[in-house]
Structure formats: C-alpha cells, structure tokens
Simulated assay, not measured.
Amino acid sequence: MLEALRSGDALNDKQRDVHDRGLVGVLRALHDDLDAAVADAYGWPVGLEDEAILARLVALNAERAAEEARGRIRYLRPEFQDPDGAAARAAEAKRQRSLTGEAAAPPPPAAAVRKWPAMSDPVAQYRAVRGVLAAADRPLAPADVAAFFQGAGPAKVAPVLEVLADLGHAGRTDDGRYTG
C-alpha cells in the first residue's frame, strides 16, 4: 500500500479497503516522520534517494573507522558495549599521551581495575590513587592512573593527584606526571 501511495497510483476498491482498515495513512505519516528525524539526526536533507543515503553511510562508516583507528570510539550504549569503560579509558590515555608526547604506560591488568570510590568519600579516592602511585614503577599521567579505575577518567583523578602532590604525598614531574 505504501509503495502504491508513494508512486501516485490510484487505489482500487479492495486496496482502498485495506488502506482504510490498516490505517495505512497513519503508517505512512509515521514512516515519513521517522525518515525526517533520521535525516535530521545525521544532518542530511529529507528525501534523499536510496543511492545517496547509501553513499553517505559508506562515507560515514569510513570516517568512524578512521576515528577508531586513532583511538576514538563512539559507543551508543557504553554501559552495555564497554561496561568497565576499559576502551574509553585506553582511548583517553592514548589521546593524552599524543598531546604530551609521552610514552605509553602499560595498561593495568584486568584484576587491578577497580571501581572508583564515591564522590562522597574523598578519603577513599585519595587512598586509592596513592596506592596506584605507590605500586607504579614510573611516573604516571592522570590518564594512566584513571585506567586503574572503573568510572573514573583523567578529569576525576587529576584533582586527587594535585592534592596528593600539594600535601607532599606524591611527586609531580615537569611534564604533568606523578610519582608515589
């Protein structure tokens, strides 16, 4: 029915009955609204032909593959696709190292990764970060320390590192890394 309507063909009595009983007009409106919403989400004009949509999707796929090769991963549902956040932490650490030019620190073993302490427990955060620094055999960047914690990124770990350094419980290198 939708194809017949879109092609402009006149409907016979039997088709008109199916159209009316099946609420095909409502279905058509919903399809059109969905197509417009998808086009808007991608920033594309409404009404592209199938070939143009396919060409744009292939180009978008190549762009995303290049991003992933550079370490950027865009999860739709990170809590499901990367529940422990390992890929996101590794990508952020890689990005931070590329900005600072530092050598990559080896990722922590899976058994060493633990949950980031609650915001309401700064003492636990302090102890956890201090423990990571104490066990490290080299200075660590905030992204390297964050890799030891599920639910923490460099932005959460950096203030704790600053406090540790200010209190003299950690050393701070000229390149922004920390020692235990």
Rank of each mutant, 00 (worst) to 15 (best):
P122V: 06
G22F: 09
I73V: 14
A52H: 09
P106E: 12
F148C: 03
Y126S: 06
A91F: 11
P159W: 05
L34S: 13
G8E: 02
T173A: 08
T173Y: 01
V145T: 04
R95S: 13
R70T: 04
D144I: 01
V58Q: 05
Y178C: 07
P107M: 02
V18F: 14
A136C: 11
Q81T: 05
H169I: 00
M119K: 13
P107W: 07
V160E: 06
V113F: 01
D40P: 02
V38L: 15
R16W: 03
W116N: 01
R16C: 02
P154I: 02
A88P: 15
L99R: 15
S98K: 11
A69R: 13
A93N: 12
R64M: 12
R70K: 10
R177E: 10
E51I: 09
A141Y: 05
H19F: 14
Q81W: 03
L164A: 05
V157F: 07
R127T: 05
Y42R: 02
D137A: 14
Y75G: 00
T100M: 03
D144T: 08
G168N: 07
R6G: 10
R114S: 15
R95T: 12
E3T: 13
Q15L: 11
E79M: 07
Y126K: 04
P106I: 08
P107E: 07
R21A: 06
V157L: 05
G8P: 11
M119W: 15
D32N: 11
G47W: 02
L27K: 09
E51A: 15
G151I: 05
L76Y: 10
A170Y: 03
A29H: 14
V123E: 13
Q96D: 15
Y178V: 03
I73C: 07
P45L: 04
P109Q: 14
G22V: 03
A152T: 01
L54K: 07
V145F: 02
Q15F: 07
A69F: 12
E49L: 09
D82I: 01
Y75I: 09
R56A: 09
L167G: 00
V38R: 11
E67F: 11
G131A: 07
F148P: 00
A66L: 12
E92S: 13
V38G: 11
T173K: 09
K14M: 13
L133Y: 06
R172Y: 00
F149W: 00
L164R: 01
Y75A: 14
R16Y: 04
Q81P: 08
R56E: 08
W116G: 00
R6C: 06
